[in-house]
Nucleic acid binder design. Sequence first.
DNA 1: CCCCTCCTGTAGCAACCGCTACATTTTTCT
DNA 2: AGAAAAATGTAGCGGTTGCTACAGGAGGGG
Lengths: 182, 182
Amino acid sequence: MTLSDDRRAAWLDGMAQHVLTHGLTHASLRPLAQAVGTSDRMLIYHFGSKEGVVGALLHHLAGGFVAGLEAALPPGRAVSVPLCLAEVVALLRDPGMAGYGRVWLDILSAAAGGSAAHREAGQEIMAGFAGWLEGRLPEGTDEPAAVAATLLTLIEGVIVMDSVGQSALADRAVAVVGMRLS
Amino acid sequence: MTLSDDRRAAWLDGMAQHVLTHGLTHASLRPLAQAVGTSDRMLIYHFGSKEGVVGALLHHLAGGFVAGLEAALPPGRAVSVPLCLAEVVALLRDPGMAGYGRVWLDILSAAAGGSAAHREAGQEIMAGFAGWLEGRLPEGTDEPAAVAATLLTLIEGVIVMDSVGQSALADRAVAVVGMRLS
DNA sequence: CCCCTCCTGTAGCAACCGCTACATTTTTCT
DNA sequence: AGAAAAATGTAGCGGTTGCTACAGGAGGGG
């Protein structure tokens, strides 16, 4: 290990904070370095390349996202599927989690553009989200995997609708699915 | 009108084609100009700025997307809501429309990043899509607006899941919602 | 004919990009 | 203490970005 672990973690925390507020698409080395009090020279030295920086950062963000989910909603199961859905949608719309929504869309765009690193990070984030969501489903839910897949897909749609200012349509969809799924 | 309309249309067609295959995020003036046989100098002259180019291009893409939908699925209504959903999902996954999926994610990313032009284009595309979808719902559907909002949100989720290689989860969600919505 | 407006090619500017060569400082090991 | 290794600062390279200054061609109206 060339870079002490706590320093590396501090750098990743700072860069993640910068990316959560300024976006990932146009994040370049010099601003990232400045956000953590170092230089682009150092980032390249310790991570090898920008690809190395972004890869580590994406992995860090994936962990931070799931940690944010677990920190925001007290551990335990929801009392019903519609309530679970409503809780999660409200949580993702919370200002404290809104930065992840933006970065999430940046990751999707880059993944669709062919970046393997972003595609893998997307899968990692999705897997963490799916696991957490399945753990929040009410006890005794029929076919929990199918229900989780449905909620997951719908929630992704809500994020998209929100990003173009169509939250009203998303709310309507959440209401309809919640009713039909209870 | 400083630029003859057919020439402007030809330029927009060519630039749209380039963007549909190479992505919108990193589309810069010189490659765009080369794709239509002119120079960045000319694009700036006739559109004022890159913002002008992108704005016109986004508007053109919005029209092309709806035209692609209408061209692919014969006019008329689907026989059931689940079938309608399945048809639309299959259409958006068709190679002929896949380019729009990628550009769509680029637009969402830029819109979430604060670009007003991309946000407006996103709303325009969403409005066209919603109108077309509502027109395909089976005759006599209860609460067509609510059903359309649900399908729309779910379909956006499918696009997201596909982009990170989770089409299986998306298929499951489509099956569940189709069953519950019939 | 000349002028005037529209259009276009050439060349280049300043800023930013990822990355590197080189020298220097700081730490670590013996 | 002295040598080796790791870490860092300075400066800059070659490339791309959006955009512009300048010159000139093309065509129409006086």
